[in-house]
Design a protein around this nucleic acid. Sequence first.
DNA 1: ATCCTACATTAAATCGATTTACCACGTCAA
DNA 2: TTGACGTGGTAAATCGATTTAATGTAGGAT
Lengths: 341, 341
Amino acid sequence: MVKISDVSARAGVSPGAVSRVLSGDPTLRVSEETRERVLSAARDLSYVPNHAARALRTSRSSNLALIVPDVTSAVFAELARGAEEQAGMRDLTIVLARAEQLDTDSSWLRRVVGEGRIDGVILQVPDSAPESSIEALVDRDVPVVLINSMSGGPVSSLVLDDAAGIRVAVDHLHSLGHHSIGFVGGSSRSATGRRRLRGFIDAIDALGMETRDEWMTDVGYSGAEGRQAVTELLSRSTLPTGLVVANLNAALGVLAEIHARDLRVPGDISIVALHDVWYADATWPPMTTVKMPLRELGSEAVSLLLDQKADSPPEHRVIRAPAPELVVRSSTSVPTKRVTG
Amino acid sequence: MVKISDVSARAGVSPGAVSRVLSGDPTLRVSEETRERVLSAARDLSYVPNHAARALRTSRSSNLALIVPDVTSAVFAELARGAEEQAGMRDLTIVLARAEQLDTDSSWLRRVVGEGRIDGVILQVPDSAPESSIEALVDRDVPVVLINSMSGGPVSSLVLDDAAGIRVAVDHLHSLGHHSIGFVGGSSRSATGRRRLRGFIDAIDALGMETRDEWMTDVGYSGAEGRQAVTELLSRSTLPTGLVVANLNAALGVLAEIHARDLRVPGDISIVALHDVWYADATWPPMTTVKMPLRELGSEAVSLLLDQKADSPPEHRVIRAPAPELVVRSSTSVPTKRVTG
DNA sequence: ATCCTACATTAAATCGATTTACCACGTCAA
DNA sequence: TTGACGTGGTAAATCGATTTAATGTAGGAT
């Protein structure tokens, strides 16, 4: 491996000078000619600074940890891509970890952070997780950005504008002529779930429609829970003609259970799901969705982490751009008949 | 941050001694009593060795790069989990990257490797990728393990026993009474695709059934390509009663297109897909699959990477354990009628 | 001739752990 | 007494880049 002293030797200057030229130190005064010599020497030898040495000296590892509950989720994939892009631009690297490790082996994070391997943490706690597990991270000596979890509190956070997304979904159904619209959101035990429910109710109100408890469920985001949601809805008196599902994983389950009951989408019920991911048009029927700025969420998380000075107060941002966008496929249509459960 | 000299001071020994005690250097001779003092000093101060310093000295970063074509794929998720687990056990960290970056910015890998940030690479090239892009990595100065791509060649590789998985699928359909079985595999332009096709033909042969070209397609793994596969099958004379789909993403598309044609699964056609991932039972109907040892593939990749000495010849392993396992759901049944396209 | 800037660069300390080579001390045999 | 050996460590170099404080030199002003 070619090192800085090789470059400096070739350019006929000191290693210090090379370092300063290469990093563009503004306090350094060099003749244009020397600068050129250094630059071309570095190029000729294709010099790449050793990361460990730099990290040791500067005590920054240029590694960020991305901790998510579930790598499987398509939501994660988009998020990761955004984070990665932004990280790439800033010469950072993303280290992958499951939130699971936080529980089973909470020492993991402590250790990696203690070792100085991680400069910052992007954390998406499972909705199900007790908020106390977050607290455990607060006094840690790395900046943390919480994603899609609580807003407020001592840790910086970033959330999507779920309410806006849900509004788009509701508007769509309304404009098709639906007047009874149901909601399959996350559990109201989680902050996210409550935020979404609130968004739904507001959207319905704004259009002068009514919400009915029997049209709403209080389950999680998995496929199985989506199925369960439909079972619950059907066990009640009437079914709404339209359904907003706050998560595409759950929407798969919803779809499966609806089919299992021999109902038709969108014939018997129209469905709009939040988050536009690849398999939205591989379902049957292809699903109408609301595309949320997940990628931007990821990249913004990286930015926030880095722009955050050590002692600055936590920031809480809402990602609003680009605005949630309706992607019409085949799971929605004008309402036809109403089904009784 | 507490450093090694703090520990050594507290224990009344030299830093060198602490290092050697902590790393269990067998050539060090210490009295049991001194060892205890060192250990407890480290514990009391909750000493964690600085990673950068260690990396600088030992020139190993303890970082592995996991490069995949698509973080979205459920296959990736399982793989990543396996890799992560194994990495965790060995005190390594997994760095995430998209294979995309290899094309758009092939300097990325060069740079990170040059910086010494990466000790090894687990690489899953897209089936579509030219094999030349692999070559570009061969002479790099890090060990590389290729996943699910070519076998043989100068780079170590790891593949699943696809043939065995397909055999399980074919056996299942055969034992249900199917005699006309079709295949939606990967493109025959990729080594993986060819391997799978071979496995399929062998499995059919072994059971004394016949394969027909009109029952086989030659498309990729995406949902869209799965739809296209069905369109092609239907454009031909007869449809088989059973279908083996070599990938669950494609299977979603297959399912969607079948529904779109108003055919019934498993009434008109039974489907078995390779890879058992979470949404297999969130589809309609829930899909019968063959569970492949993806997790083991991931963990084995890490092991192979590390066990590989610098100058040892490349190894090519096939992951056979645990054996492919049939997961019966609702997309398969005894054959009823045969549909003409 | 002397002092003062401004300029262009360098020397050397530093980050923290690892590792090789060496040392001091005691004991035991010849 | 000497030398060989075992015991229980230590000193110091090293990994490679960064950064602070210092240094030599030329030119201009007094």
